[in-house]
């Protein structure tokens, strides 16, 4: 149903190493917010990636392919977790520094630029093969996705606080 990689080469190693290294880095950070919130952030990022990819990489649009096949393959599933550590790190730093106004705009542009750079690296390793898609298009997608992610994180944290769910603020 989900084919295995055609050859276990550059793209597979890139995805595995980035995902493992990313989650390892994030797990070493001191805890700032509940695991329930970080789980939702990961789910949100994976959902956005799947919705966008499955809408524009499948026929009739078919703008690019991920990994070895035109079909949906096993490594594609892992690919969706590759961006999660970036998302966790971006909301972590957002929560730590609380950028506002122009600083927030700069923060979102900075993370979008980093995601764009990371996608460029991924194309070098043949994780993405474009047909009608172009790399600069992705920047606008990252701007929207990063903004949505920040809004989602703020809303989730506010909900958590409003319902007195934070461990340190909950009644004993």
């Amino acid at each position: 149903m989900l084919p295995l990689p055609l050859r276990f080469d550059g793209n597979e190693w890139f995805i595995i190493l980035c995902t493992v290294f990313g989650f390892l880095c994030v797990s070493l950070l001191p805890k700032r917010y509940p695991r329930a919130v970080s789980t939702l952030v990961v789910l949100f990022v994976v959902s956005v990636a799947i919705v966008l990819d499955h809408s524009i990489m499948t026929p009739p649009l078919d703008m690019y392919d991920i990994n070895d096949y035109k079909k949906y393959e096993l490594m594609d599933v892992v690919t969706y977790f590759m961006y999660s550590p970036f998302a966790l790190l971006s909301v972590y730093l957002y929560d730590k520094f609380h950028p506002k106004g122009f600083a927030l705009v700069g923060y979102i542009i900075g993370w979008s630029a980093l995601a764009e750079f990371f996608e460029w690296l991924a194309t070098l390793f043949h994780v993405y093969t474009y047909t009608t898609w172009k790399l600069p298009y992705s920047f606008s997608v990252y701007l929207v996705a990063t903004t949505l992610q920040m809004v989602f994180f703020r809303y989730t944290m506010k909900y958590y606080d409003r319902h007195n769910l934070k461990p340190e603020t909950s009644p004993q």
């Binding site: 149903m1 989900l2 789910l43 994976v46 799947i50 499948t58 026929p59 009739p60 035109k70 079909k71």
Partner: peptide
């Protein structure tokens, strides 16, 4: 959403049991 998208993509792309429309408005 994640589950539904994955199932639909596997069924369409890999198994050919669904056919997506070619019309842009129907695809929307």
């Amino acid at each position: 959403m994640i589950l539904d998208h994955n199932v639909m993509t596997v069924v369409t792309l890999n198994l050919g049991m669904y056919q997506f429309t070619e019309s842009p408005s129907d695809y929307l």
